[in-house]
Structures are given as structure tokens and as C-alpha cells.
Design a protein around this nucleic acid. Sequence first.
DNA 1: AATCCGTGGTG
DNA 2: TCACCAAGGAT
Length: 298
Amino acid sequence: MSAASSPAASAQLHATVLAWFERVGRDLPWRDPGCSAWGVYLSEVMSQQTPVARVQPVWERWLERWPTPADLAADSPGEAVRMWDRLGYPRRALRLWESARVMVEQHEGEVPRDHDDLLALPGVGPYTAAAVASFAFGDPRTVVDTNVRRVLARTVSGTQYPAPALTAAEMRLAEASMPADRDDANAWNAASMELGALVCTARAPRCEECPVAHLCAWQLDGRPEHAGPPRRGQAWHGTDRQVRGRVVQLLRESADPLRRSDLDAAWPQDPAKVERCLAGLVDDGLIEPVEGGFALPR
DNA sequence: AATCCGTGGTG
DNA sequence: TCACCAAGGAT
């Protein structure tokens, strides 16, 4: 009997994963019941496409420096980019700063509790809105991240990997997979993500340690290999992304603005590429032109 | 719908 | 070694 086959199997999946989570779930600081909604919010944005282990030290520094949305909103966006350190995708830092201003101007300086208000914040999409609603406010929205997608693909659908992009059918499956009880539903959101992060991993799943291997459809079917086209990795070497990253890193590490000639160090073999990336970064608000060079935004 | 946007660990 | 991948979002 697999996890998809009956309500009873679904209940067993919930109970087993929740018990496993109680036992071995990581003791992350933003899971502390005393953590503020702002702390939870920061952790969710920082964790978008970035492993938790790298997020934690930066999260601590941010909360110490900016304990509330108003504290961040009162500082400069450039400081947010600087404090972002090397988490990657630094526009998230900019969006965080922008969203702090929205919280001050429209939500009395608080992280909004309403799901639609969360979704309207810059840098907040379906995943983050649901996660903050559930983890910060106990509103049992269906949280669907890459971990949940993979766990459901395997345990319920019996496939090694989910589709390249989230489908409507997957969303329906995730909603149908939620426990009815409110507290269980919120715990399930965290627990199913954790199972995907620690055990039901993409490349080398630890099925021998998995608490639900005995009812996993993929396992019961003999762990069939992914059929279909190979999944496309992202190009990196020599891309604008790499060069932009180097430019922002140079500015992050400099207390003062840098001259245009200093920034050629980001990609010495092609100054025209640097030029194009600088223009893009200015457009994005990640840097700004100043007298004689460029700086992080003030 | 497909592409762009960083960074670093890992199998 | 190097392609893959990570608590996605915006356009």
C-alpha cells in the first residue's frame, strides 16, 4: 500500500513524517517559537535558492543589526546589499529593503499576517507567502517548495523527479496532501520540507534512513530512473551572472566607491562585457553611478 | 513559457 | 573534475 492509495495511507504518511520531524528535525533559530515574524520572514527570503547552512550566520547578523522592519527601512539599500554577503542573488537584499519600507508605510511596521498582503510584497511569491503565513502566523497555507515537490513526486506519484516547473496538478496534489488539523498542517509544511532536505534529496536519496520508505510509491516500484529529457543545468562561466557577481563583490568589499577602471578587474578580458553588466546593475538598482565611478546605492 | 538572476558544496 | 543543485521570484 503506497502513500497515494487511501486516506488511511495518507494519515500514516503524515503521522510518520511528523514523528520523524520531532525526532531529527534541525534546531534552526527561526523555528524557535519565540522567533519574531520578521525573523521568520528574513529566513524565508534568504533561503530562496540558498542552502540553510549558509543562511544562518547572515540571518543572525541581519537580525542583530535590524531587529525590526523599521530598522532596515531606515538604513540604506546599499547596506542591505553589503550585509547580504555572499548569499547570492543580491536583488533579494534589495527586495527585502523595499518590503521593509512597505511594512512601515502600509502595515504599521509589522510583517503583514494576511496572505494576499504577503504576496504583494516585493520579492515574495507563492512559496514565501505561504511559508510565512504558516510558520510565522500559524495560517495553514499549502507550502510547496522544491523539497515538498520531490517528496510528493516520490512518495505519492512514484517518480524520481517532479516536472521541471510546478504544474497545476502538482499544486492540487500538494493541497490534497495536507493534514486536516491546523497544527498538523503547519507542522507538515515544515516536516515535508525537512524530509526533502535531509533524506529525500535530489541526487543521492538516503532511502535506507527514510521513515516512509515502506510506503513510498517510488521505492515500492523499485526506484525507476527518471524518464524523459535530461534536465538542463544553468550556464555559468563567462555569463553576465558571473561578471555581475564579481562587480557587486568588489563593491561590497570596498568601503568607498570604485572607479570604472577598478571594476575592469571583474572581467579583465572583456571591458565591454563589464560595461554592459554595470548598466544592468544600475538598472536593477544594485549599484549606482557616482562622481568618478560606482557605489552601492545610498 | 522560458530565461535570467549568484554562490558554493558535492557526488 | 565538473555538472548538478539549493526553503524562488520577476519578467
